[in-house]
């Protein structure tokens, strides 16, 4: 009898969500990169993170690369596109932070509007560390860039009503539902946002991310269980593509942030930062992320190669 290769078939399928004017995320009906078992959907996307203010807190190596452009988000975005050709740009509105520059929602909206006018790549719009401020910022920003299919990162339990209503319903953009590595809450938040009236095809999710070594196993098992519920149990409430803001996590941990003066035995700081970013991104992609956000051009190159090799 000839050998018949077994394959694992699932009843569920991740919803395909289009961001911007044509970047597709999701659509897979099998585990990540399991092309031998089924349809792996759209190729995972890579975005690059920029800020609305100069990133003083970033390690010097990154400032050496972007410093010349980072006083203007449009120049910064264009430099990233020219140098690294990402699939999307993530503009983090760090300047909105009440603890920092406390920029008004209108100022933030103006920045995003300029970017929308100047670049054609899809935008992912991330907020600051205040859920309350993000609610008012996202409402204004969504209004300034209506019907763009931009992703708003994120709606959390504390502000999903405002963010969902503005980004997902009134102004034709996409809501990312964010929970902190808690699969029951991830499901609950998706349900609450859809009960609000946001269509599932206008949603992605971020079920939490961390840098490798910082509870990362928990991130991976959570994502794994979410994906298995979506595929194996055909749980429609969890069939949204996953976006992972890897760089938000990996560049602030000591392995990336400690200088060579502080930690001479740890070696080159820039190489450490890239290694943390690459290892984390590869990990979340292998467990189900449909998009990752990165900072360093070298990380983008390595992860793109990783994706190309595994989807070839």
């Amino acid at each position: 009898m000839p050998y018949k290769k077994p394959s694992q078939k699932f009843g569920g399928k991740i919803r395909e969500v289009t961001i911007g004017s044509g970047l597709k995320l999701g659509g897979e009906s099998t585990l990540p990169f399991y092309s031998f078992d089924g349809d792996t959907g759209a190729k995972p996307a890579i975005g690059m993170e920029i800020w609305d203010i100069f990133p003083e807190s970033w390690p010097q190596s990154l400032k050496n690369i972007f410093g010349e452009y980072a006083h203007d988000p449009v120049k910064w975005a264009k430099y990233c596109i020219e140098k690294s050709n990402p699939d999307f740009i993530c503009i983090k509105l760090e300047g909105a932070s009440p603890e920092g520059n406390n920029k008004s929602p209108e100022e933030c909206a103006a920045v995003v509007k300029r970017l929308a006018d100047e670049i054609t790549l899809p935008l992912v719009i991330a907020g600051c560390d205040s859920d309350e401020k993000n609610a008012s910022v996202f409402t204004k920003v969504a209004e300034a860039v209506p019907d763009k299919n931009y992703v708003f990162l994120s709606a959390v339990e504390a502000n999903y009503k405002e963010v969902g209503a503005a980004a997902g319903m009134a102004y034709g953009n996409i809501v990312s539902a964010e929970s902190s590595v808690d699969l029951n809450l991830a499901k609950q938040l998706n349900i609450l946002i859809t009960q609000l009236g946001v269509k599932p095809e206008r949603m992605v999710m971020n079920p939490g991310c961390s840098a490798v070594g910082y509870g990362f196993e928990y991130v991976v098992t959570t994502m794994d269980r979410i994906r298995l519920a979506a595929l194996d149990q055909n749980d429609v409430t969890l069939q949204m593509p996953i976006i992972s803001p890897v760089s938000f996590e990996t560049w602030k941990v000591k392995e990336s942030a400690a200088t060579e003066n502080d930690m001479p035995e740890w070696g080159n700081q820039e190489a450490r930062g890239i290694a943390m970013e690459v290892a984390t991104a590869a990990g979340v992609l292998a467990t189900g992320s449909n998009a990752v956000i990165l900072r360093h051009p070298r990380s983008v190159e390595v992860i793109r190669n990783f994706i190309e090799e595994l989807t070839a």
Partner: peptide, 12 residues
């Protein structure tokens, strides 16, 4: 374990 728990599971 056939359906992932969430607070609203009865509503689905």
């Amino acid at each position: 374990g056939r359906n992932l728990y969430c607070d609203s599971y009865l509503e689905l």
